[in-house]
């Protein structure tokens, strides 16, 4: 016996979806969706669950992560209920749900909290700069270590527990009986989808967007690798220097295009932008762009007189690593991949 909760849809509005009550359940969205399958039929069912406020059902579902938001459902919707944006909204809501700290939900649903968070991180970095007497070398040394420590701690303290929570909600709590061997067999699917997002190619006319996305992912991983492990800002190795330039360039060129698309709103997927969407693309752009500039300033021997540039870069990096990566849209990268993995487990259990 289901109990309904109409307040859920009201709460969900803070995460994005504003028009879902207009839905009259015609099912055109599911019919047109190239990714919807018999066992994972969406978006209508998810929309219905949202309108009725069946939050435990949504929490146990992998469906929101299986959608790559081509926007065809929203274009087709006769009531302009925007089912595509609802799926995006549920990804935000799920991110908050999986997050054990509760910070994710706060940052998604409250703009003041978001601003306070970003300002606090900036103040902390400036404070550290002050503690280091604004000595450029000391600060850069701190920056280099900060990146490594941030990656390790964010992963172990936030992301890993959250993925375990996701596993609990979607597999364990649902009492899905998975054969042990499947956990190993499923890793191939996991890696394949994590690095290629190949399912998004099933969306119509999506090759360019998929390519852009792929370039950004690899550019991002490459930049992370060169800065953290190859110490890009301190290296003398020409190959590494150029590798860093290429990675940074790849990111900021393509993120710039993403930002422009969101401003132009020409495509369905860009028509609605939640603050978290803006933050993600803008900070990714700023991160790559400031890193690029820092290295240019190093190569032209200007950095020692332009400490502020590195400070800005470090603030952006810190905000990215401490807020967007653990609590924001960055997590989609992980949750989507794990969703594919869990879906595989689910299939094997049958």
């Amino acid at each position: 016996m289901l109990k309904i909760n109409p307040d859920f849809a009201v709460k969900l509005k803070k995460y994005g979806a504003v028009d879902i009550n207009a839905c009259y359940n015609c099912g055109n969205c599911t019919a047109i969706c190239p990714l919807s399958e018999e066992d994972h039929s969406f978006p209508r069912r998810m929309l219905r669950a949202s309108v009725l406020g069946l939050d435990t059902r949504i929490e146990a579902s992998l469906d929101p992560w299986l959608c790559y938001y081509c926007g065809e459902c929203s274009e087709t919707c006769p009531r302009e209920a925007n089912p595509g944006e609802l799926m995006m909204t549920l990804r935000r809501w799920l991110t908050a749900k999986y997050d054990w700290t509760g910070l994710s939900g706060l940052l998604y649903s409250s703009i003041p909290a978001l601003i306070i968070g970003f300002v606090l991180v900036a103040i902390a970095i400036i404070g550290i700069g002050f503690a280091k007497h604004f000595n450029i070398e000391a600060i850069m040394d701190f920056g280099h270590h900060f990146e490594l420590i941030a990656i390790i701690s964010v992963f172990s303290l936030i992301l890993v527990p959250n993925i375990i929570r996701m596993f609990w909600f979607t597999i364990l709590k649902e009492k899905t009986k998975v054969p042990l061997i499947s956990y190993i067999k499923g890793t191939w699917d996991f890696l394949l989808h994590m690095f290629t997002q190949k399912n998004s190619l099933k969306c119509e006319n999506n090759i360019f967007r998929w390519l852009e996305h792929l370039v950004i992912v690899f550019g991002y991983l490459l930049l992370l690798f060169t800065t953290v492990f190859l110490n890009w800002f301190s290296t003398e190795n020409t190959f590494i220097i150029w590798l860093g330039y290429i990675a940074g360039g790849m990111i900021f060129v393509f993120t710039f295009d993403f930002i422009l698309s969101r401003i132009r709103k020409s495509k369905e997927i860009n028509k609605f932008s939640h603050p978290s969407d803006w933050l993600f693309v803008i900070w990714l752009f700023l991160m790559a762009f400031t890193a690029f500039l820092v290295r240019v300033f190093i190569d032209t021997d200007l950095l020692s007189n332009n400490l502020w540039l590195y400070m800005v870069h470090l603030i952006v990096i810190a905000q990215w690593a401490l807020l967007i990566v653990p609590f924001g849209k960055w997590t989609h990268f992980l949750y989507r991949s794990f969703a594919m993995y869990f879906k595989k487990l689910e299939e094997d259990s049958k």
Partner: peptide, 14 residues
Amino acid sequence: LFDEVSRQGDIFFR
């Protein structure tokens, strides 16, 4: 009217 009342949040079951 049907459109209006559902947009205002009334829920329909069949």
